[in-house]
């Protein structure tokens, strides 16, 4: 029997809120599935739609974008830009046939370690149910997955 499918999830998070929340989950010794890989950025405003595509290109089955709660952005309003950008970009992704559940968006503050662990639990389960993201795998096979940038 083959191994059960374990999805790969790439999370783009801001350093002030969600990254700190993920650290808090660690210092609180909460447990969550090891499927998520975190890329730390100064602010969700820095997250380009290209990063999300790059993650899929690398073989991610799901992407998470997470930052500070509305009104709490360390940089005043970077998270609003991120939300607007994500809304527009996700609509485009859906139009091109990428299902909505592949790209998640959430707010997690530095105090919400529990919420972070629960979120990773739930999205890992959702993506696991959705199965491998084959659409991009074909493309990866064509272009090669070597770390060429």
């Amino acid at each position: 029997m083959s191994e059960p499918f374990e999805p790969k999830i790439v999370a783009f998070v801001c350093t002030y809120c969600t990254y700190a929340g993920a650290d808090l989950a660690g210092t609180s010794r909460l447990k969550y599935p090891p499927n998520v890989r975190i890329v730390r950025l100064p602010c969700t405003g820095r997250i380009s739609p290209m990063f999300i595509l790059k993650a899929f290109q690398k073989g991610a089955d799901g992407v998470l974008v997470s930052g500070c709660h509305p009104g709490d952005c360390h940089f005043d309003h970077g998270n609003y830009h991120a939300r607007r950008r994500w809304t527009a970009f996700n609509a485009l992704l859906q139009f091109t046939g990428v299902p909505e559940e592949r790209v998640k968006f959430s707010w997690i503050s530095a105090a919400e370690g529990i919420k972070f662990a629960e979120l990773i639990d739930s999205i890992t389960e959702e993506i696991r149910t959705a199965g491998p993201f084959e659409q991009y795998h074909k493309l990866i096979a064509e272009t090669g997955s070597a770390a060429s940038v």
């Binding site: 890989r37 890329v39 790059k54 993650a55 690398k58 770390a147 060429s148």
Partner: peptide, 17 residues
């Protein structure tokens, strides 16, 4: 571009995963 978090750096980071 943002020094310390350039496009190249982030792309490389993602591709290294």
């Amino acid at each position: 571009d943002l020094a310390g978090f350039t496009e190249k750096q982030i792309f490389a980071e993602v591709m290294g995963l």
